[in-house]
Design a protein around this nucleic acid. Structure first.
Length: 206
DNA sequence: TGCACGATTCTCT
DNA sequence: GAGAATCGTGCAA
């Protein structure tokens, strides 16, 4: 059982580093969501880095600053959540070593730990479909009830936070091109997707 | 004010 | 592998 102690929660300094380091080190950490129905949690197994102004794949490309992207310019370690394709939400974490520079990490997949039944329920899946429950950015938000209501939430406290987990050895971490950013010119080829080797919950093989 | 499109997923072929 | 679902956002007019 997970400890009730808050000491496991990652502190602000963890996020105040460049997006590549944070994206890599988020692997193995535990995303925890609390609702009135209970707790759901999952081990982060896939992430993507977006580094802002110069990155054509980023929502903050050319320092675009609007109501949607505003959170990216705020404190690090906050949730940047947006709505895509008219039906899915995506969860990102603000990061970066430079205050005000919009760097974020997209959480692309988690491996369910707690509240599996609840997650399957939210996704309207049967228990033999666990692997389909959180293996993608839209899926995990659906399973863990993460919506834009939590946009801007500070991830060092409930009801949405990230806790320490088992350390993932460097040789188990793979890199690949980011997904769904074919419009981003040469930036689409950057190997800024990180995932745990041979993990069943990674959204797609390279 | 209108319009094209997306950091996705599911279903069917 | 292709096509649909579906609506907020950003930009042109």
């Amino acid at each position: 059982m997970r400890s009730k102690s808050d000491s496991l929660i990652l502190d602000r300094a963890f996020y105040e580093r460049n997006a590549f380091a944070v994206a890599r080190e988020l692997l193995g950490k535990v995303l925890v969501r609390e609702t009135e129905k209970g707790v759901t949690s999952g081990r982060i197994v896939e992430t993507e880095a977006y580094i802002g102004p110069e990155d054509m794949a980023s929502h903050a490309y050319k320092s675009l600053r609007t109501r949607r992207t505003e959170v990216q310019y705020g404190p690090k370690g906050h949730a940047y959540i947006y709505f895509v394709y008219g039906m899915y939400y995506c969860l990102n974490v603000t990061s970066g070593g430079i205050f005000g520079k919009p760097e974020v990490i997209l959480i692309r997949a988690v491996e369910p730990i707690e509240g599996i039944e609840s997650m399957l329920n939210n996704r309207e899946l049967t228990e033999d479909k666990v692997k389909k429950s959180t293996s993608g950015p839209g899926k995990l938000c659906d399973a863990m009830e993460i919506t834009t209501k939590l946009n801007g939430h500070d991830l060092v406290k409930p009801p949405l936070c990230i806790e320490n987990g088992d350390k993932v050895s460097q040789d188990r971490i793979q890199q690949a091109k980011r997904i769904g950013v074919d419009y981003a010119g040469r930036w689409k080829n950057m190997l800024w997707r990180y995932f745990i080797e041979d993990n069943d919950f990674v959204s797609r093989a390279p």
